[in-house]
Write a protein that binds this DNA or RNA. Structure first.
Lengths: 364, 364
DNA sequence: CTGAAAGCGCTTACAG
DNA sequence: CTGAAAGCGCTTACAG
């Protein structure tokens, strides 16, 4: 294969073409030295161009870029990492039980990183491991990560945030917006989901359908999401003058099991509610199980709402009305923030959630 | 912090301790040069020990290892990669719709890699992308991967297998055992799941429960798993003299939708079967939906069996009887094979699947 | 705007 | 069994 001889760029001389052809046919790896040699500049100049430095004459830049293209040169990431003490690896740190969420996030992050010559190194961990902080410190330092993305609930862990600051590594936290403004100001870059918006729509949807006797199964109150979602559901109901029935207001922890047990408790009572809001789809699936056992028909006798749009939710019978978070979009934007934005100061991006109405909710 | 002065190893002299203390308090990164200097050997010798070379005197090895320990030295992965043209990164290449499978596999792979100073770089891709091969070639070459793990169905892709051989990179394929021995001999290292075993148990379970009129919804026949599973189900039934009713033998493609449509078709007939075997849980969930709409009670009027033990399966009402693959174990062992075993020749590990009986199956 | 020199922290190839 | 030298492919720090 020879360098396209019909070259529109008259900056590429016959001499250069000859050099390129020789390199290409030698089958050896093309390095910065080859580019420098062919373009007749120093490798420092090539380095400047690779790293988007401004201090290069336009003409020089154009020539070098063309040579890079013709040689199919890509800089060696390990060599760059060694010299600059920064790798082109991004770490994804999480401890999360929801596989779909993790996979969607990975896809979104990679949507962006791919265009950027970076790779994603996954690092699931155990938030109850007492060596968590040291272990993550090792990970970041050894791999000289160019950035870290923290998923909830680890993104809320003060120890990890402090670690990122101590290591001076760019990081982006994926979090849910707190309604509670008495919280200390948020630290570092964040991609924030607003669980509240979709929940408000869901509450409104139920209230408008005529439901007045409404049960509630809460999320794990240690997570901001549980508070946010509740605030949203309540606001949506209240806009139509409806409140959660305190008689059927049960705690939960986002697990199928607590959803099931809470629903059993609620549904066994004689004036049982006509709708139950569960703080996530897992628990909503627990409500389905309880309803099934008690022979209560969804949606005819009971409407159910969840949160997450888990794969599960569309597979339930009837399919579950739920709230969706744009997880993949959030991942893509988190990666972009990490790479493009200097991490000093506050940076945030906000993503609302959406109500998805399916077959589990019905009016009278 | 000073090096433990009460040192049981009399090889560590006071002089060495002093040097170590000075290094540790300097806060600079500890390198191979420091280790060599403290142990009074060449850095080549330290390198031999890091890389488990045999040609080192026991005494020397012991001393150097102790110095490494006291200095908390860890070799720089990027420097090693640059010098040896091999990184300490393992690539996970897949194109798979099932999030739980991917996440379990990642966990298993990391179970092993963690103990090994290696990291996992994830690389989801699109098998219909015409640049697939070139794109993966770039990935492997640029990152100088020390190994690649291929998940199904990409693990069956001849183009990728040839690519791995061409690049001479160690690789392990995760595959399902084919029953068909006319297939060409299997290439390279493999971690093989035997879908057949669990399916046979499932078929047997149904037949022993007294089912004689049995419907079947197949998997995507492009994947070996679809054939394996069918062979297993049939063998299990046949051991009790039962066969799939050809009248209710429907194709499917592993999607919820095809499961649903096939089940509708089957269940609308007047002599409908008392049990349906679906080739995976997604399709089994489709059967639930169809049964619900047709007002057919599971398991009282219809038993259902799936495959995967997806998170979904335990959440369905009633919970689904299904077959489980030891995904995480497979991942751990794949990583171990990749790292420990020279990739020449055939190497395989086999993992059987298990029947998990839950509430969706019932006798008469 | 550009470059020569030194160095990042290892391993390779060779020698003894 | 051990080591001195060169080199992997880049960037840094400095100079002009």
């Amino acid at each position: 294969m020879c360098a396209e001889s019909v070259n529109s760029q008259d900056i590429i001389t016959a001499d250069i073409v000859k050099k390129i052809d020789r390199l290409l046919s030698s089958k050896k790896k093309v390095t910065i030295n080859d580019v420098a040699d062919v373009a007749d500049v120093s490798k420092k100049t090539v380095s400047r161009i690779i790293n988007d430095s401004q201090n290069v004459k336009d003409e020089t830049r154009k020539l070098v870029k063309e040579v890079i293209r013709l040689l199919h040169y890509t800089p060696d990431p390990q060599a760059r990492a060694l010299a600059s003490r920064k790798s082109f690896l991004v770490g994804l740190v999480y401890d999360n039980p929801n596989a779909q969420y993790v996979v969607n996030m990975q896809m979104g992050i990679l949507d962006y990183l791919r265009s950027n010559g970076r790779e994603l190194v996954v690092h699931p961990c155990d938030r109850n491991n007492e060596n968590l902080v040291d272990e993550i410190r090792d990970f970041v330092e050894r791999q000289k990560l160019s950035g870290v993305i923290l998923l909830p609930p680890l993104a809320e862990d003060k120890r990890l945030i402090n670690l990122m600051i101590e290591l001076d590594v760019p990081y982006v936290r994926i979090t849910a917006r707190r309604g509670n403004l008495t919280e200390p100001p948020l630290i570092g870059a964040q991609v924030i989901s607003i669980d509240r918006v979709g929940c408000e729509a869901a509450g409104n949807h139920l209230a408008r359908a005529g439901h007045k006797n409404i049960g509630y199964i809460g999320g794990n109150l240690l997570y901001p999401s549980a508070h946010e979602r509740r605030a949203g559901f309540e606001a949506g109901l209240l806009s139509e003058g409806v409140k959660i029935n305190p008689q059927f207001d049960e705690p939960g922890d986002y697990s199928f099991e607590t959803g099931y047990l809470a629903a059993l408790k609620i549904l066994k009572q004689h004036n049982r509610p006509t709708a139950i809001i569960a703080c996530n789809d897992e628990m909503a699936a627990g409500v389905y199980k309880a309803a099934y056992e008690l022979n209560i028909a969804i949606p005819n006798e009971l409407s159910v709402v969840g949160f997450d749009d888990a794969p599960l939710s569309a597979r339930l019978t009837p399919p579950l009305t739920t709230v969706r978070l744009p997880t993949r979009d959030m991942g893509r934007n988190a990666a972009q923030m990490l790479v493009e934005i200097d991490n000093k100061g506050l940076v945030e991006m906000v993503f609302p959630s959406d109500l998805i109405v399916r077959g589990s909710t019905k009016g009278f």
